[in-house]
């Protein structure tokens, strides 16, 4: 079983998003990028399958200029190979263009199963796994958990609203958008990642993508909140006193 895991980096929401409020453009170079957390779950699910049945795991990223550390981290966690798709890409490259490059790569390099995070925080023009599947006309499912290999079939769960789930079976090749791995994503120490940088290589594959339909984004802007919480200031004890008073006023606690 050959598994390809798609990974991408996204702006770190712990920091303020860099936006030119006059032009409505995102300032990609002024933001810190971190691996998309759903992709971390996809990698973890792939590594769990490798642990269980000995799958060969390749992790792939489109070369937007900041992906080496992410790929070596995946190798340090247990991925067998790392691939970087090079070409005319940068942090502003659309998901659609990335999906086209990945689909082109998959046409030349056969895999049985492609796992990716079900979504990323910045995929305004569509989610990459579904688009890769759509371009290749491969079967695909999103919001997936609990993947297992059963003979020549893949079994998995799909989540719907309200806690409802279904167990599905599918033939390969198959693309799955992972919601959450069965276990929290494993950790690779900085030392181990550094060691990987010395002992392993990232395969660079030229993947100049064809022209794709690009979504014409007119502007980004901050939402005007309909309301905002009345902030309670002070030390924890003062805040706790005020909250208790509010709860008493509303008869939510006795007193």
């Amino acid at each position: 079983m050959r598994i390809l895991v798609l990974s991408k980096s996204v702006p770190d929401l712990v920091e303020e998003l860099a936006l030119d409020e006059d032009s409505g453009e995102l300032l990609h170079d002024d933001m810190t990028y971190v691996p998309s957390e759903w992709d971390d779950h996809a990698l973890e699910e792939a590594l769990l399958l490798k642990d269980e049945v000995g799958a060969e795991v390749t992790v792939l990223a489109v070369d937007t200029g900041d992906v080496d550390n992410m790929l070596f981290t995946a190798l340090a966690k247990g991925a067998d190979h790392a691939v970087k798709l090079t070409g005319d890409f940068d942090l502003a490259t659309s998901n659609r263009k990335r999906a086209q490059a990945i689909a082109n790569y998959l046409r030349d390099n056969p895999f049985d199963l492609v796992l990716s995070g079900v979504q990323a925080i910045d995929d305004i023009d569509g989610q990459i796994p579904a688009m890769v599947a759509g371009l290749l006309e491969w079967p695909h499912a999103s919001v997936v958990t609990e993947v297992s290999i059963q003979g020549d079939q893949i079994h998995f769960r799909q989540e719907y609203g309200g806690g409802l789930q279904a167990e599905l079976a599918a033939q390969t090749p198959l693309v799955l958008g992972i919601q959450a791995a069965r276990k929290p994503p494993r950790y690779a120490s900085v030392a181990k990642v550094r060691q990987m940088m010395k002992s392993s290589t990232v395969d660079e594959v030229d993947a100049s993508a064809d022209a794709v339909p690009e979504l014409e984004i007119r502007r980004f802007f901050k939402p005007v909140a309909a309301g905002h919480a009345e902030m309670i200031e002070g030390e924890p004890d003062e805040v706790a006193d005020r909250i208790i008073t509010i709860l008493k006023e509303r008869k939510l606690v006795r007193g």
């Binding site: 929401l13 925080i121 910045d122 305004i124 984004i217 007119r218 502007r219 802007f221 901050k222 939402p223």
Partner: peptide
């Protein structure tokens, strides 16, 4: 609505 609701975007 993108970036976990922190930004909105307009597309034509």
């Amino acid at each position: 609505q993108v970036f976990a609701g922190k930004l909105l975007a307009e597309a034509v």
